[in-house]
């Protein structure tokens, strides 16, 4: 009878330990495909935009929300709380952030879209969340956001909500 080697068997737990970590990028891919956690939207530049979004009839209300971390003291609000987005029509809007502190802060905005499964139909051309933002002391900065609706959005897409939560971050990453 062929014997099962315990060393060979130990490969399974080792692989599974790795698999635990592999779940992190797998989850990201999974989210991207299914839109589970509402983090994934389309990013387009002007050229490709013409390809993805031909002018459409469909108008969808987009609700803008802002959400500052409870330990952070800046004021962060959208200039407009409600937009109507239409495929092929670009809309530029602004968020306002005020830094009352005596020092410059670097912040990163993290978006979340609800319902998550429709997040792929929100196309962003320009967003302050793409990069970290430096806010000088005692000043208010207008952060631009340029969005449109994907022409691929099916009929049942009836509304979208886009929320930004803002975090103070170390300049140059420090994120994993």
């Amino acid at each position: 009878m062929k014997k099962l080697s315990p060393l060979k068997l130990s490969i399974i737990p080792l692989l599974m330990f790795g698999f635990g970590f592999a779940l992190v990028p797998l989850y990201d891919i999974f989210c991207q495909v299914t839109g589970i956690n509402g983090k994934y939207y389309q990013v387009a530049d002007e050229a490709s935009l013409r390809l993805v979004s031909a002018q459409g009839e469909k108008v969808v209300p987009l609700r803008l929300l802002a959400d500052a971390d409870s330990r952070d003291v800046w004021h962060f609000t959208p200039e407009k709380k409600l937009l109507e987005i239409q495929a092929g029509k670009m809309i530029t809007t602004y968020y306002e952030i005020t830094n009352d502190q005596d020092v410059e802060v670097t912040v990163q905005a993290v978006p979340s879209i609800a319902p998550g499964e429709w997040s792929e139909y929100l196309v962003k051309i320009e967003c302050f969340c793409f990069n970290q933002q430096k806010i000088p002391p005692h000043s208010t900065v207008r952060l631009p956001l340029q969005v449109t609706l994907s022409s691929k959005a099916p009929e049942e897409v009836s509304h979208l909500s886009l929320s930004y939560r803002i975090y103070q971050s170390e300049p140059l990453g420090g994120t994993f």
Binding site: Y27, C31, D69, V110, Y167, G174, T175
Partner: peptide
């Protein structure tokens, strides 16, 4: 300083629940 489960660093607290319940 990693942020697997912290939205601030691009993580997701819900990921924790997926891995935990797996």
């Amino acid at each position: 300083g990693a942020s697997f489960f912290d939205a601030a660093g691009g993580g997701d607290p819900v990921l924790f629940q997926h891995v935990f319940w797996f």
